[in-house]
Design a protein around this nucleic acid. Structure first.
Lengths: 224, 224
DNA sequence: TGGACTAATGACCATGTGGTCAATATATAG
DNA sequence: CTATATATTGACCACATGGTCATTAGTCCA
């Protein structure tokens, strides 16, 4: 008998109940595709999970389905619920809310997996991006735009901000997110001082946006 | 010889001198990869060029080499030389220069091939991105940052702007480029009014950035 | 006209991919 | 302990890919 149980635990085959197995697969897939990008292969992923790649196809009939699931996991599940209210909490002044939110948000988002898979998915046309950006629009862009309008005219009661205000709000968002893109997509060196960066950017926004908006609202084409 | 150069039929095999052939390959590759992304295959490209894919490998021993060349072609060769001076032309006031440059630049850059291949290449780690961004830094970011400092303190003679000014300048750039990213990478609907967008963003920048910079400089004490 | 030089090709290779399926092994019920 | 249901597998398919190389055929010169 030359068997002798393999010391370092070598379970030939683990039989898990489907639910548990699925969780393991999704979890592993998130890690794997985050690192490798979506060109990663199902076989590699399976090897990493210690299962056969055929098993993956039992749980996710196509690679795309798995990827969709990974996106859900990364982007929707990681949205911090407290952000929802953070921006609308009138007990804090607007600048403070902006700084807190964006410091927090940028810190959450400024990671290679997040940024790279997000952008990667955008290029690949995965629909999750658009879904996520709708979320951002609803929970961040519009509230900020609305608040911006109030800054210009305290009396506004409109529910929907003007296009210009929305554009300016997207601008702030893009500017901040672009820091992460520069870092993780283009690989160039950027400041490590997130708080300082956010504070500066928000300050610029608050000093510039209301005036720009007012200029537009007042008479088109006014120049500095 | 029943020639008629623009062969309406099927030229079995064209024998070009290597220089000409190489040009054709590069030109075709730019178009092809722009459309398809860098997952496009050498065979497809060859078919499109009407040559065998083996021939591609005669001119570019590996696919990566071809891609490098494509990048050169797209990003370096398309840099509009007039941009170099446009920003530094003191005969125009600064706001006007900014608006002209960025309207022009955004218009040049806001195309699917440009944005997508650029971002694609960033993710893939193609070094051309970093090269290109160095160019942007030298010819756009730094001049703008410098001018921004002059706005705050007309007396500055420094050759190198402060980190904050540079960051603000990158911010403007990112904000503007992010429009194209939203459009072509995330596929969301954005304003079609480029001039309006640039004018608004630049106005916001000019109204906000000097103040933000002054705030920093003040809080920190004097700067040389 | 006939070489000769060398663009250009087709056939081929090794490898990797997403995806399928009949066979197998394991946790659990009886 | 045995039977059963099914989670899991290995072997396999069709196809695409990057890359190689001996062979073929344009074109220019003597």
């Amino acid at each position: 008998m030359h068997d002798a149980d393999e010391g370092p635990a070598k379970p030939k085959r683990k039989r898990l109940d489907p639910q548990r197995r699925e969780e393991e697969i999704v979890e592993g897939a998130v890690l794997y595709f985050s690192e490798v990008g979506f060109d990663g292969s199902m076989r590699d992923l399976a090897a990493r999970l210690g299962i056969s790649h055929a098993l993956l196809f039992r749980y996710f009939p196509t690679k795309d389905l798995l990827i969709d699931r990974v996106y859900d996991q990364i982007y929707l599940a990681r949205w911090n619920p407290s952000w929802d209210t953070m921006l609308e909490d009138r007990s804090l002044n607007f600048p403070e809310r902006l700084i807190r939110f964006y410091s927090d948000y940028l810190r959450a988002v400024d990671r290679p997996e997040w940024v790279r898979t997000f952008v990667y998915g955008g290029l690949a046309g995965v629909n999750i991006n658009q879904r996520y950006l709708k979320l951002v629009r609803r929970k961040v862009i519009l509230p900020v735009a609305l608040e911006l309008e109030r800054l210009v005219d305290a009396g506004v009661s409109a529910e929907t901000p003007s296009d210009e205000a929305v554009e300016l709000s997207w601008g702030l968002h893009g500017e901040i997110f672009y820091l992460a893109i520069r870092r993780w997509v283009y690989g160039i060196k950027v400041t490590a001082d997130i708080d300082g960066f956010v504070a500066l950017t928000v300050a610029k926004f608050l000093k510039g946006a209301p005036g720009a908006l007012k200029g537009i609202a007042g008479a088109r084409g006014r120049k500095a």
